[in-house]
């Protein structure tokens, strides 16, 4: 199913993601890596209390409500994958992002902006592997 090319909205949304990352660094001194923030809501608990991370995740989850309140309606996202594929994909995304110490936000945005060699490698790898995965599932299998 084709989706509409939205360069302006996507760039604007991207700057909001960037603004959020900058604010988190400026006020809390933390990298806006969603996998790290979410994973450290789970045990084992280490040094810091999870209240700040909990508040950040609550903001993420409540964003659709805020969007609907301002815009009057919400876009309708499509999750095409079956429940069994979602379980497998969820396990891989959860494990891989924690094992690789970052995901699209921590490596793909914050890490690249910091010119981190680790994040450059990580981003290149997950982009390439995801593109190959989509190619195999959509065009070969």
């Amino acid at each position: 199913m084709a989706t509409e090319f939205t360069p302006i909205a996507s760039f604007l949304g991207g700057t909001m993601i960037g603004l959020s990352a900058v604010l988190l660094m400026l006020f809390a001194g933390r990298i806006a890596g969603i996998s790290g923030i979410a994973a450290r809501l789970l045990p084992p608990y280490g040094d810091s209390r999870p209240t700040g991370r909990l508040a950040f995740v609550a903001g993420l989850i409540l964003a659709p409500l805020a969007y609907a309140a301002v815009a009057g309606s919400l876009p309708a996202p499509t999750i095409a994958a079956s429940p069994s594929v979602l379980v497998v994909a969820g396990l891989l995304v959860g494990f891989g992002s924690v094992w690789g110490q970052g995901c699209t936000s921590g490596h793909g945005v914050c890490g690249l902006a910091r010119l981190s060699p680790r994040s450059m490698v990580a981003t290149a790898v997950f982009m390439a592997v995801a593109i190959i995965t989509v190619f195999l599932t959509r065009h070969i299998l």
């Binding site: 999750i79 994958a81 594929v85 979602l86 497998v88 994909a89 969820g90 396990l91 891989l92 995304v93 959860g94 494990f95 891989g96 992002s97 094992w99 690789g100 995901c103 699209t104 790898v125 997950f126 982009m127 390439a128 592997v129 995801a130 593109i131 190959i132 995965t133 989509v134 599932t137």
Partner: peptide, 8 residues
């Protein structure tokens, strides 16, 4: 991570 991202 990339496999899971590409699947879903």
């Amino acid at each position: 991570f990339g496999i899971g991202w590409g699947l879903s």
